[in-house]
Design a protein around this nucleic acid. Sequence first.
DNA 1: CGTCTAGATAGAAGTCTGTCAACATAGACG
DNA 2: CGTCTATGTTGACAGACTTCTATCTAGACG
Lengths: 121, 121
Amino acid sequence: MSKQLPIVAMDACCSPLAREPLSEPQAVELAKVFKAISDPIRLRLLSLIASHEGGEACVCDLTDAFDVTGPTISHHLKVLRESGLIDGERRGTWVYYRVHPEVLARLSAVLVPADPATALV
Amino acid sequence: MSKQLPIVAMDACCSPLAREPLSEPQAVELAKVFKAISDPIRLRLLSLIASHEGGEACVCDLTDAFDVTGPTISHHLKVLRESGLIDGERRGTWVYYRVHPEVLARLSAVLVPADPATALV
DNA sequence: CGTCTAGATAGAAGTCTGTCAACATAGACG
DNA sequence: CGTCTATGTTGACAGACTTCTATCTAGACG
């Protein structure tokens, strides 16, 4: 579960994409992470985990929120795990997931527009 | 080209994903935009356009930066266009693209982690 | 040990995606 | 008008993705 994280992309990629052109390797690594959150179920899973009290959520809490089967949720959690966005830990009967906020922060930083006038409303 | 923008998602989605759970419709709309940037070529296209002087870039500038054929670049630009991230305008012989910084800003805002301690380095 | 539950894995079916070659279209220009 | 160049569109195909059912594994507990 919490096996060696692939320690994704994130190394050489913090300058906003609008400041200077992404290198090809940076783009490849970033694309993997964005692909991980390019599915509605995975986005909601990530959001449920990140916004859950205590910063973590049990798979049992997550499964009920969707119309798909357990294995499908497992699959999506695996994709999020392999992208480095979340990590899971077994405690007794249940498995708890939590997000890696640094990864989220870096994705957010990469997307910041160049023009400082375009502030968040 | 600059036909009625689909005026994507972006309406009801500015609260960070880690603050409260995304609704299903929000997730569906956001996922479309993230899917648009989940390809290395499209990420680099977006970055090239956004970081280009004057805030716009001609397709002719873009095509040379990649190993794929013209039609493939056209296809990727179309995906970015349909997601609302960029817009193109023909001026004489060439077509110029520019990004919509608000869309970028909103994506960035959605990904901001909950914990304020996780500031950008 | 046997059994029950939470979750993960495997394999299959159907759908979507990226890429190309071939063709179409829009201005520029003679 | 005819032709050349810059982009876009179409149709095809291989590979990747999502979801399911069936099966397996790890703890809990009697």
